[in-house]
Write a protein that binds this DNA or RNA. Structure first.
Length: 443
RNA sequence: GUGCCCAUAGCUCAGUUGGUUAGAGCGCCGGAUUGUGGUUCCGGAGGUCGCGGGUUCGAAUCCCGUUGGGCACCCCA
């Protein structure tokens, strides 16, 4: 009947997570939750499926094409969420009246995009969003930087850069040259600057946005500004001299960067970068992109920005906000690539070996005492050769093993083996837990 | 979605211009060592060469399709 066996396989861009991957993944989630909670963001969740009209047309044509969309059993036109921001908009329109503003929420959940998978890009991946809605205060933008910083710091990453810009600064320059309605193709071209170089960007701008050479040059002038934040802003100021929104953006970026520096964020970790223009269409103010300096190729691991009307399509109440999204699966892929993931196959810290199946109750009793001390422990399910059982502990990288046979039960003591050190101690029950705690706290 | 590259044992790969029973290392299982892992030695299992079709006396090898992976573009976490 081997013909009838179904080939086990996952869908393109969808993945299984083995324990060695899932354990660090859950650790990352926990770290994100901790930092978000510390800053006062509350958890929410929304359904994976929404009515298609809720999700369509929110992130441009491109994201519509990537929607997983189908007709359900009740003939409803439904789609799987593409990100967590659009569901938040719907959520806010429905619940803000009872929640009040400002409202700070975090949302850690999978999203689905039917795009071509690549390194660090999947069709099902976890996003970890946090947003503050209902306030236009720059304080919320600053807090967003702090959360991104603290989160990456908590994960143990130091070599990252948060790039910050403001949509209105670019718009200011464009406004000054009467090019505001050609923003999209111009930004798209500008965004390619580091990849294809100035000349090619100018060529593309001329072609796709019908600007002349001097106009293209002026736009690039802004993006080309480099150096320390305040000096970049000083140089940018004259470029938007006649644009109110441009001036406001400069002041906003000035407040943001100076305050962050004052708090202790370094210039290496927060970078004013007037060339970043990406992000979804709904961003209208501050924008963020975060890169790992060692792995620029993997793309942004945390992006976000300010929007002045999150839920305009769902309610008449105007809801400004700011937030960002950590790409946890991309980050996990990056950590894996850097070999920074600790290879663990289980959460167990102690393996209680079974020497004599008749003493199963004793083995489980001691294991449960270890649990009560807050330490993960498991009893090996079979009483086979002790060597086999230790081999299992070794493979799963369980650091400690407990062994007890006839002799130990007669003398009322236990053998505690430290698999890393290769040493073995004979202990009575009272000392056993203490010793386990001691050994585990050192490593 | 467009273009290009890739697919052989659980993993990483070798397999010569298409030519008999498809190989290695690691891992796995068993033994040396029936109260002690990570070292060493010995033995063993495991593959319809991603799948389907075609060309051929003969296909892992050539052609087409399909599924999955990677790179560039697009877009993005």
């Amino acid at each position: 009947m081997s013909n009838s066996i179904i080939k086990p396989q996952t869908l393109r861009g969808f993945r299984d997570f083995l324990p060695e991957m899932m354990i660090p993944r859950l650790q990352l989630i926990e770290q994100a939750r901790t930092v978000y909670s510390q800053y006062g963001f509350s958890p929410i969740d929304t359904p994976a499926l929404e009515y298609s009209n809720i999700l369509l047309g929110k992130g441009g044509d491109e994201s519509d094409k990537q929607l997983f969309r189908f007709i359900d059993q009740g003939d409803r036109d439904v789609a799987m969420r593409f990100d967590l921001t659009v569901p938040l908009a719907r959520f806010a329109a429905q619940h803000i009246p009872q929640l009040g503003t400002p409202f700070k929420r975090y949302h850690i959940a999978p999203v689905w995009r039917g795009e071509r998978p690549a390194r660090g890009r999947f069709r099902e991946f976890l996003q970890c969003d946090f947003d503050t809605i209902g306030t236009e205060s720059i304080a919320a933008d600053i807090e967003t930087v702090l959360v991104i910083h603290d989160l990456l710091h908590a994960i143990g990453l130091e070599n990252f850069t948060i790039h910050v810009n403001n949509r209105q600064l670019l718009n200011g320059v464009l406004e000054q040259h009467g090019l505001l309605e050609r923003t999209v193709p111009l930004l798209r071209a500008l965004d390619k600057l580091p990849k294809i170089g100035e000349e090619n960007v100018i060529a593309e701008m001329k072609q796709t946005a019908q600007v002349d050479h001097d106009q293209a040059k002026t736009i690039l002038q802004l993006a080309a500004l480099k150096g320390e934040a305040s000096s970049v802003l000083d140089q940018a100021r004259p470029l938007v001299a006649d644009s109110e929104r441009g001036q406001a953006a400069i002041e906003s970026l000035h407040r943001l960067t100076q305050t962050c520096f004052e708090i202790g964020i370094t210039g290496d970790q927060l970078h004013l970068d007037l060339s970043i223009a990406r992000g979804l269409d709904y961003y209208t103010g501050t924008i963020f992109e975060t890169f790992l300096n060692d792995l620029p190729g993997i793309g942004s691991i945390c992006s976000g920005g300010r929007y002045d009307d999150l839920a305009g399509l769902f309610t008449k109440q105007k809801l400004p906000g700011v937030g960002a999204s950590l790409g946890l699966d991309r980050l996990l892929a990056a950590l894996e690539e850097q070999g920074r993931l600790e290879a663990v196959g289980t959460t167990s810290q102690v393996l209680v070996t079974q020497f004599d199946a008749n003493h199963l109750a004793d083995y489980q009793k001691i294991s449960r005492q270890i649990h009560r001390a807050g330490i993960a422990s498991e009893v090996y399910p079979e009483a086979k050769a002790i060597g086999k059982q230790l081999k299992y502990a070794n493979k799963k990288r369980i650091p400690l093993a407990i062994i007890a046979g006839t002799q130990e039960f007669e003398n009322r003591n236990w053998q505690l083996k430290d698999l890393n050190q290769g040493r073995q101690l004979t202990l009575n029950e009272a000392d056993l837990i203490e010793k386990i705690r001691e050994i585990l706290s050192v490593t």
